[in-house]
Design a protein around this nucleic acid. Structure first.
Length: 195
DNA sequence: GACCGGATGTACT
DNA sequence: GTACATCCGGTCG
C-alpha cells in the first residue's frame, strides 16, 4: 500500500486522470477509492487555466502533486490534482466511500442515501471537508493520503460534464460499472479501455 | 464599478 | 424537469 510516487504527478494530465482511477484518497483518514475524474489543461477552453494565471487558479500553475481547490456556484467546492505540464489538473468527480463513513454522513446528512455521499465533485468535497483552506496544499502530506491501487480496474471514457466548451473531447474517466459515479457514462459516446 | 455566468447540489413539481 | 441558493473571477465599460 505505497503512497503515489512524486513521478506520478509529472505524467501527462490525461494519463494521470486515467491512472488516478482506483487510487485510494483520504483527507484526515476520511475518503475512499477514486472512481471518476476529468482532465483539464491550458489549451482547453473549458479549463480555468485557459485564460492564464490568476489568483484563483495559481495552484494549477504551481508544482505538480498539489491540490487546486476552488469554489463553484458560490456554495460548493471542487478538488483538482495538479499534474503534468503547467496549468494542467485532474478534477476528482466521485469516490467510492470506504473510510470514515460516520464522519461523512455527519457532514452530508445522516439520512442521505449512501450512493449520493461522494457522487459529484461538490458532494465529495463536503464529505471530506475539503475547502479553500486546502487550495495549494501538498498531496503527499497530511491531511491528504493517496495510495497506489493494487490492480487497475477497467476504465470507461466519455465527454466531460457540466461544461459548455470543448464538450466533444472524451476527457472524463470512470471505473467501469461503478455504482458510485456522479452520472453514468452515456452509451453512445463511451469507449471501453484498459490501463 | 457593474454585470455575467459558471467543471453544482438540493428541493421542490 | 425546473427553480433556486449564493459567490467570485473575468470581462467590459
Amino acid at each position: 500500500m505505497p503512497p503515489l510516487p512524486p513521478a506520478f504527478y509529472a505524467q501527462d494530465v490525461e494519463e494521470a486522470a486515467r491512472a488516478l482511477i482506483g487510487v485510494d484518497l483520504t483527507v484526515d483518514g476520511v475518503g475512499g477509492t477514486i472512481v471518476e475524474t476529468e482532465a483539464y489543461d491550458v489549451a482547453d477552453p473549458a479549463s480555468h487555466s485557459f485564460a492564464g494565471v490568476s489568483a484563483r487558479n495559481a495552484a494549477m500553475f504551481g508544482a505538480v502533486g498539489h491540490a487546486y481547490v476552488y469554489r463553484i456556484y458560490g456554495l460548493h467546492h471542487c478538488l483538482n490534482i495538479v499534474c503534468g505540464s503547467p496549468g494542467s489538473a485532474v478534477l476528482i468527480r466521485a469516490i467510492e466511500p470506504r473510510h470514515g463513513l460516520p464522519r461523512m454522513q455527519e457532514r452530508r446528512g445522516i439520512d442521505r442515501p449512501l450512493r449520493q455521499l461522494c457522487a459529484g465533485p461538490g458532494r465529495l468535497c463536503a464529505a471530506l471537508a475539503i475547502d479553500l483552506a486546502l487550495d495549494g496544499a501538498q498531496l503527499n502530506a497530511p491531511p491528504f493520503r493517496l495510495i497506489t491501487p493494487e490492480r487497475h480496474a477497467p476504465i470507461v471514457t466519455g465527454p466531460r460534464i457540466g461544461i459548455t466548451k470543448a464538450t466533444d473531447r472524451p476527457r472524463r474517466f470512470c471505473m467501469q460499472d461503478s455504482p458510485w459515479l456522479s452520472r453514468p457514462v452515456s452509451n453512445s459516446l463511451a469507449a471501453s479501455q484498459h490501463n
